[in-house]
């Protein structure tokens, strides 16, 4: 098990690359969904503001 993780001394390079990939994909996902929600809520707020004028 430790051998599989150590990867003949290259483990730190290999695992950091895979870890970074996961982080980037998570960031992209959070950004995309958060942006959609923000724009959706802003549209609603603006319409309400217009109607109450």
């Amino acid at each position: 098990m430790t051998d599989a993780l150590a990867m003949g001394g290259y483990g730190v390079y290999v695992w950091s690359c895979f870890g970074l990939t996961l982080i980037v994909i998570i960031i992209c996902t959070v950004q995309a969904w958060r942006r959609h929600r923000t724009i959706f809520n802003n549209a609603r707020t603006q319409i309400r503001a217009m109607k109450s004028d």
Partner: peptide
């Protein structure tokens, strides 16, 4: 990470290719 054999020149470092 686990099933592909190590590269004959690069050993396990070649696994970075997968990302």
């Amino acid at each position: 990470l686990f099933y592909a054999p190590p590269d004959y020149q690069q050993g396990d470092a070649f696994r970075i290719i997968y990302v």
